[in-house]
Simulated scan of single mutants.
Amino acid sequence: MRAIACLAVVVIHSVNITLTNYEHTVSQFEEYFLIAVRFAAFFGTPAFVFISELLLARSYPNKVPHGFFLKRVKYLLFPFVFMGLVFAFITTDSLTGFIRESLFNVFLGGYTGYFILIIFQFYILHVFLHKFLKNWSPVKVILVSLIINVVYLSFFNFTEPLAIPLGEYIWQRGHWLPFVGWIFYFVLGYYCGKNYESLKELVIKYKKIIILFPMINLIIMFVLVRSDILPVVSSKRIDNLFYTSSVIGAIILFSLYVKKVPHFILLISKYSFNIYLLHTFFLFYLPPIDFLNPLVYFIFAVAFSMFCSYTVAKLASPFQITQFLIGKPIPIPKHTKTQNNRG
């Protein structure tokens, strides 16, 4: 799931750079196809929130270990800050602009690494709430969290920016940062991690529905966009709550039938955080290539940005300091297998 979510995030930004670089030459079919691919990949960042909490709930059912926050500050927050400074440097041409953009990136999540600020909020929530969550009714808590999430996103999806300082920014992307906008994925991840064995049985029991749901939800999303009922172009759409949940269910179902995890999936998973932080850096410098049509260019952009990110992370891994700058690869067992637990 981590590997697929990582790939989805890269796909979204590769679509963006393709549409930007081929703005005047892309055909209507190519444009619509790329936009459809981007919408299909919107589950990426929300899935990371889900994965993070699922792993916490499974690994630390009672309490987080000593040094939990220090470790994550070193290997998540430090790289987030460093890459925020890097993106400020490459996107500005003056000291004043660099300082302003750096503060914007680090404190307001002004670049693609904003996800780290959200994850840290949920680390704190997990520490304070897990004692209560484990005693509450999963169905009721999941339903309440869904309602809260829907109401919160509805406000920003269906209203115009208020005439307040940073109003345009808050409506455009500032509302992404508070944990309320992701609370459903957090709660869902907690209970799925806490009851993972039961979850697998449930997924197998309703496998026919789970296979169909992602496509049904994606079609609904397309209809709402094309009809201008919900023209928001981001993963913070109301309908993405249901779409992401269905994709997560489908990935879990698929994983139960995989005997051995493919090597390339293990590689993407291992370097997922490095790829997440670095891929937009390489996309930033990727120029249009005249002899490639937009669809081929898009595929090339995905492969190019992922390969460059992986290569940099791989070459830098022997140097310990780089773990605090571009992230630390995630250790994986040499012979990782996903067993078929259908009983």
Rank of each mutant, 00 (worst) to 15 (best):
A5M: 03
C6W: 04
L7G: 09
V9L: 04
V15N: 10
N21C: 10
Y22I: 05
V26F: 07
Q28C: 06
F29N: 05
I35A: 08
R38I: 04
A40F: 14
A41S: 12
F42W: 02
A47G: 04
I51F: 06
L54F: 10
L56M: 02
Y60D: 01
P65G: 09
G67L: 11
K71G: 12
V73N: 09
F82T: 05
V86M: 09
V86F: 08
F87Y: 15
F87N: 03
F89L: 15
D93W: 09
I99W: 07
L103A: 09
N105L: 05
N105C: 09
G110W: 03
Y114H: 07
Y114N: 03
I118R: 01
F120I: 03
Q121T: 08
I124K: 05
H130F: 07
K131N: 11
W136C: 11
V144P: 05
S145Y: 00
I148G: 06
I148S: 07
N149G: 12
N157R: 09
A163N: 15
W171P: 12
W171I: 12
Q172T: 15
H175R: 09
H175M: 13
P178F: 08
F179L: 12
G181M: 01
I183P: 13
Y190C: 05
E197Q: 15
V203I: 15
K208V: 08
I210Q: 01
I211D: 10
L212P: 06
M215L: 15
I216D: 02
L218T: 05
M221T: 13
M221P: 04
R226M: 10
S227G: 04
L230E: 14
K236Q: 13
R237T: 11
I238K: 02
N240S: 06
L241Y: 06
F242S: 08
Y243F: 13
T244F: 03
S245W: 08
S245A: 13
V247W: 01
L253I: 10
V258E: 05
K259Y: 06
I265Q: 08
I268K: 02
S269Y: 08
S269Q: 07
K270Q: 12
K270P: 05
H279I: 09
T280D: 06
N293A: 09
P294A: 02
L295D: 00
V296M: 09
I299S: 12
S305R: 10
S305F: 13
F307D: 01
C308D: 02
S309Y: 10
Y310L: 12
A313F: 03
A313K: 01
L325E: 00
L325F: 03
I326K: 01
I326F: 04
P331Q: 00
P331F: 04
I332K: 05
P333C: 04
K334L: 07
K337Y: 12
T338F: 12
T338W: 11
T338A: 09
N340D: 13
N340I: 11
